[in-house]
């Protein structure tokens, strides 16, 4: 049975715990003079990005290189797919080169599931690096790791997390709601009804429409990026109006409880979902999230591509 990481649920609570624990070791590797271990020597990790993404792609490639894996990178414009190019042909071609893991990013929800089905029996692990509005599991893992390390509680258990903004179109929100809830946090979505999914049946979270009502009780205030095109879809009247109701300005940030964290998956719109001065506060751990991204992705690749029979982690070969 080939291990994939399509969504956080694939790992389950034990798997998440194992990856977060491994991440500690990877952070340690990152601090070495030569931040590289031979753990995945001879393995090939391919990144297949059908959507522009600088940080996630660099983060995965850096992670693979630090584990001594060989890396290949396929950059495919979405227009090629719209012309009718078969995703399946592309993937089977790459698979035929003899690879171990395929890290995939696609603007359409579900593509990693389609790939996993086509690659069944090939031994290739599929890692979801973000699919449409659906899931972004490594983002959720790096966010959980960041909260665990940066919040004084040292754990998500019992923390009150607000996820603020465009939940409807956000793969980060979908992965984080389920990941944070799995780790014991109590999650509240804060957004106007137009930016929430049509149905939240089965979602382990509450909903609020007024940020001012809940901001004083948030241990973590997680802000989502608002895309410009949401205005033309009549989902919010204007950026200004959005910032008025849902932007984390200084006044709102000052109402956060002591020790609360401000997080954002990036790239941030200063002045829209977050005021410039708030982004630079010590409680805003946005760059810590990026830094932890490499270590978490190292942990994920290591977790999927090695099967330690005795559960012992051997990074140095």
């Amino acid at each position: 049975m080939t291990a994939h990481l399509l969504c956080v649920d694939d790992l389950g609570p034990d798997g998440v715990e194992a990856v977060l624990k491994l991440t500690d070791s990877m952070v340690e590797v990152g601090r070495r003079d030569i931040p590289k271990v031979p753990a995945l020597r001879g393995r090939t990790v391919v990144s297949l990005f059908y959507e522009d993404s600088t940080r996630t792609r660099l983060s995965f490639e850096t992670a693979a290189k630090r584990l001594s894996a060989d890396t290949m990178s396929f950059s495919v414009s979405t227009s090629a797919v719209k012309k009718g190019e078969s995703l399946r042909d592309t993937v089977l071609t790459i698979e035929a080169m003899g690879i171990d893991a395929l890290v995939v990013r696609h603007a359409s929800s579900g593509v990693p599931w389609q790939l996993a089905a086509w690659l069944a029996g090939s031994g290739v692990s599929v890692v979801n690096a973000g699919d449409g509005w659906h899931e972004h599991p490594t983002q959720a893992l790096l966010d959980a790791y960041t909260i665990r390390n940066e919040h004084k509680a040292g754990s998500l258990e019992g923390l009150r997390v607000g996820i603020v903004g465009d939940v409807k179109h956000s793969r980060v929100a979908r992965s984080n709601v389920f990941c944070f809830a799995m780790l014991g946090a109590s999650v509240t979505l804060v957004a106007p009804p137009t930016l929430l999914p049509a149905s939240l049946d089965g979602w382990p979270c509450d909903v609020a429409h007024d940020l001012d009502e809940v901001v004083g009780e948030l241990d973590v205030c997680y802000l989502l990026r608002l895309q410009q095109e949401r205005m033309t879809e009549a989902l919010v009247p204007s950026l200004r109006e959005y910032a008025f109701s849902y932007g984390l300005d200084l006044a709102r940030a000052q109402r956060l409880p002591a020790g609360a964290l401000v997080m954002h998956p990036g790239p941030i719109n200063r002045g829209v979902e977050i005021a410039p001065e708030v982004a630079d506060l010590p409680c805003a751990v946005i760059t810590r999230q990026v830094a932890n991204g490499v270590a978490v992705r190292m942990a994920v690749l290591f977790h999927l591509l090695t099967a330690p029979a005795d559960g012992e982690v051997r990074l140095d070969g």
Partner: peptide, 11 residues
């Protein structure tokens, strides 16, 4: 169909 499944699936 817009409902619980489309919402969860991000479609």
């Amino acid at each position: 169909h817009e409902g619980a499944w489309s919402s969860r699936m991000g479609v």
